[in-house]
Amino acid sequence: MTAQVLESPQGKSKIKIENVLYSPALQRVLAFAALIVLIVVFSIASPNFLQFRNITGILLATAVNGILALGVTFVIITAGIDLSIGTVMTFSAVMTGVFITRWGFDPLLGVLCGILSGSFAGMINGIVIAKMKVPPFVATLGMMYMAKGLALIIAELRPIYFNDVPGFSTIATGSVVGSILPDFNIPNAVMIMFIAAIVGSFILFKTILGRYTFALGSNEEATRLSGVNVDLWKIAVYTLSGTFAGLAGVVIAARLNSAQPALGQGYELDAIAAVVIGGTSLSGGEGSILGTIIGAFVISVLTNGLRILSVPQEWQIVVTGVIIIVAVYFDMVRRRRSR
């Protein structure tokens, strides 16, 4: 009798259409559909849009924002926020420059240390948030300023050029793929983003860190009561976000063949926009890497397409704003219904 009662399908039938209609998967599908629609519209509107050169341009324009967005996806799934990634990216770029051009590190080691300086900034964020209990918004806002200031100080207000470091710029602009398939020279920066996305997705869905990322955002108190060291894992998540920012720093430095200390602020908002458009919930507990990558492409396809159609840049920005609100609005509607 026992088993019988429990086998009754009441639990299952509750899942029903509603849950499918308003699931985060749907949001991802929506974002993807939006991306396809944009691509179709732009390619009809302009013959230049689908040209290989333009496509590589879009891919290249997505790389830095995409990498930043990957890291902040983790933070947002824990129901946190990281406003520091833009300037931490700059800080890492500058540190990479310092390690390689001033201290004469081997370029590979310099790149690694540059990325780790991003991780370090992220770890500080995590400690301030988890141990000092400063709200993430404020803690990372503080770090945003600190990283910006430090980048300027360390670079002595000037760009650091990598002209004397042969091959540094190929990290972003070279094409390993192109050297194998000559007609298919996708820039390395793009490949780095895709590899980072695969690694990120693996971490998010296959590892302990990913599991606790979701758990923290879903119900932090329950996670704590289950005996999980909540503080430690929060620090790990922010460190990871900083690490991705560090990677983005190396990529942007390589693309510009220089570390520009005045750059960076504003990038965090583009990244957060990509995450949100990709269906990751700002209230935590759900999200995906695939969504984030789609979100990043929506933004750069939009920007690129509008530019090809000669829409002034200031209008491109307005449209991006509208897209963000529409995406979050869909998310809120879904959330209200599913309650």
């Binding site: 296959k206 590892t207 302990i208 860190l209 990913g210 599991r211 979701f214 758990a215 955002g217 879903s218 119900n219 108190e221 329950a222 996670t223 009561l225 289950s226 005996g227 999980v228 507990g285 759900e286």
Partner: peptide, 30 residues
């Protein structure tokens, strides 16, 4: 507890084993 202490977004198994997930080939894999 009176108010249920589960992570609603996680699966049943993930909830049961939260904090002591069986590890895979490498120690950080679930």
């Amino acid at each position: 507890h009176q108010e249920l202490n589960l992570m609603p977004h996680l699966s049943v198994a993930q909830n049961i084993f939260i904090g002591r997930e069986p590890r895979g080939a490498l120690p950080f894999l679930v």
